[in-house]
Each structure stands twice: as structure tokens, then as C-alpha cells.
């Protein structure tokens, strides 16, 4: 191997790399965030937009809400999305349109005051949404320095990076299949394994109580993307509602604790700065059939919740 041959090898590999990227860009054009992006950009007129992660994606029933409210709504919920992604979804809906009159932001437990930092290098799969939209909407949430921003702006042009989640999902499916050999099949719904949904919630009442108290005592602010979203809504004259989404009845003991109650008061106070109304729907559903797993509403539950939500929003106004 001489230098000329080595250079030729590099050129061929670069060509292969480029082709690979083109192939991925085309082959993975129908992943969840791509479809959501197209749906949000091509939507018909709407008055209400629902933003959030899978609790909104599964829990906000557009048809039921529209029937009950007489308005047109759109569900911009994105499963497993972080707040930066939810903010991008919000921007996709509202950036060039003026028809949105109300925004519903769905969340649960202490999520909106969870200050765990996010980093753009961890964005993939459903969280790849910012790579497809205007980078100025997301750059401040995922980048810690100017150098980080430069790398982010370059990396978002490489499909092998931005679409890696689509590949990894397929590998994960294979791993789960292999790991499940010889065991009864795990129950799944559209958000993954049902047993995994339990991991989203704090299971220890003492820790839950302590967390609530600590947030209130240290006056933890809203996470930046949510604070920005609500501020923008206020500036645009869009009425904003934050909904603490329904959770199964066996969680009631958590929401009867003083730490949680103090947290709700504190959250209401935080939201009042942007004129956002808090709708506490945590205990709205009693029936097991309202839930698809430990966190997400079933179709029946979503219809009931969305109907009641529209009434609660009218009352709140």
C-alpha cells in the first residue's frame, strides 16, 4: 500500500459514507419525528394546540376535545420527547401562523421543574426533532459552549448522526427479541414495554415527598424550554394551560402528601407570571380501563379526559 492507494481508499470510503448518508436520509424519512414535523407544518387551521411528551400524544383525543369545545385542535405530543423537543414542536405549529388561540401543555409529577441538563449529543430517535427544524429554536437548550454550538450545527447536517436513532431502534428490537427468547413475550403498547412505563414515575413515597419539598424550598424555576414556551404564548396573546395529567388511582397516596400539595401551590405561582392556568387533572380517572399502562391513557381514557379538559379550560377562562 502506497500513499496514492491509501488516498484512493479514503476517497472511496468517503464516497461510500456520502452514499450511506443519502440512503439513510431517504430510508428513514418516515420516522415518528419526521411524520410529526410534516403533520404540524401541513396541518389545517386549528385553534388549540396540545404540547407534551407521550402523556399528551396518548392522552389528548383531538376528536373528543373538538366535539366538546366546538374548536379545532391539534395534538403535537411526541412520545419520549424532552422539553427542548416539545418546544420545537410548539415552534413548528406557531412560528408562521396566527390562528392558534390556546395552548395546552401536558405534564406529570415534578417534570417541569426537573433541572437535569440536556445535551444535543443525546438527541436521537423521537428526540431528533430539533435536527429537522430551525437550529436557533433548540441550540440554546442543548449546547453548553460556542464550540459545542459549532459542532452541533455541523453534526445536524449528517444523516448518519441525526438518524442514528432510527437504526438503533431496529437493533434494540433485535436485542429485545434475543433477550426474550425462552421467556413469555413482554406486553407492549405503542410507547414500548408496559412494564417500562412504571420507571417514569417515582415509586418511593418518601423520596417523592422530599423532592416536592425541596423544589419548593429552593424555588426551582421551570425548565427553560417550558418557561420560554409560556412566555412566547403570552406575548402572542395565546391563552396557555398547563395540565397535570391523570395518573392511575394507585398513585393517589402520592398526591395526598403535603410535599405535593405545596408543590402544586408553588407551580401555580410560577405559572401566574405568564398568565398560565394550572389544571390539576391528576385524579380525574378512577377506572383501570382508562389507562394503557402505568402512565399513559388508553383511548377510552383519552376521550374522557379530553372532554373534561375542554370543560375545565372554559371554566378556567
Amino acid at each position: 500500500m502506497n500513499i496514492r492507494n491509501l488516498a484512493a481508499t479514503f476517497v472511496i470510503a468517503l464516497f461510500g459514507f456520502f452514499t450511506l448518508n443519502l440512503g439513510l436520509d431517504y430510508g428513514l424519512r418516515n420516522t415518528v419525528p419526521h411524520v410529526l414535523q410534516r403533520r404540524l407544518l401541513n396541518r389545517v387551521t386549528a385553534d388549540v394546540v396540545a404540547i407534551g411528551n407521550s402523556v399528551i400524544a396518548s392522552g389528548f383525543d383531538v376528536a373528543a376535545f373538538d366535539r366538546a369545545s366546538g374548536m379545532h385542535s391539534i395534538n403535537a405530543g411526541l412520545g419520549a420527547a424532552e422539553f427542548a423537543q416539545q418546544y420545537v414542536a410548539w415552534k413548528l405549529v406557531t412560528n408562521e401562523r396566527t390562528d392558534i388561540k390556546q395552548v395546552v401543555f401536558g405534564t406529570f409529577d415534578y417534570s417541569v421543574t426537573n433541572t437535569k441538563p440536556t445535551k444535543w449529543t443525546t438527541w436521537h430517535s423521537n428526540n431528533a426533532l430539533p435536527f429537522y427544524a430551525d437550529p436557533s429554536w433548540s441550540i440554546r437548550y442543548g449546547c453548553a459552549s460556542r464550540a459545542d454550538e459549532v459542532v452541533y450545527l455541523l453534526a445536524r447536517r449528517v444523516p448518519l448522526f441525526t438518524e442514528r436513532g432510527g437504526l438503533w431502534t431496529k437493533v434494540e428490537t433485535l436485542r429485545r427479541y434475543l433477550g426474550g427468547v425462552g421467556f413469555p413475550a413482554a406486553q407492549i403498547n405503542r410507547f414500548g414495554r408496559i412494564s417500562d412505563s412504571k420507571l417514569l414515575l417515582e415509586q418511593n413515597t418518601e423520596v417523592f415527598e422530599r423532592l416536592g419539598r425541596s423544589i419548593v424550598e429552593t424555588r426551582v424555576p421551570l425548565v427553560d424550554p417550558v418557561a420560554d414556551l409560556l412566555k412566547e404564548a403570552q406575548q402572542k396573546g395565546i391563552a396557555s394551560f398547563m395540565v397535570l395529567m391523570p395518573l392511575p388511582a394507585d398513585r393517589r397516596s402520592f398526591y395526598a402528601m403535603p410535599g405535593w400539595k405545596a408543590y402544586v401551590v408553588y407551580l401555580r405561582e410560577l405559572l401566574s407570571q405568564t398568565g398560565t392556568r394550572l389544571i390539576e387533572a391528576t385524579e380525574w380517572s378512577d377506572s383501570r380501563e382508562d389507562f394503557a399502562d402505568f402512565v399513559h391513557l388508553s383511548e377510552i381514557g383519552a376521550a374522557k379526559f379530553s372532554t373534561r379538559l375542554s370543560e375545565a379550560m372554559q371554566c378556567a377562562k
Binding site: 500500500m1 492507494n5 491509501l6 484512493a8 481508499t9 479514503f10 476517497v11 472511496i12 470510503a13 464516497f15 461510500g16 459514507f17 452514499t19 450511506l20
Partner: peptide, 15 residues
């Protein structure tokens, strides 16, 4: 054609 084969081999490995 080592240069050609290894060019494609590297692409496959990278993928």
C-alpha cells in the same frame, strides 16, 4: 484493487 476493496470495506464497517 486493494484500494477499492478496502474503501468499500471501511464504508461497510462504518455503517
Amino acid at each position: 484493487i486493494t484500494w477499492l476493496l478496502f474503501g468499500f470495506w471501511w464504508t461497510l464497517l462504518t455503517a
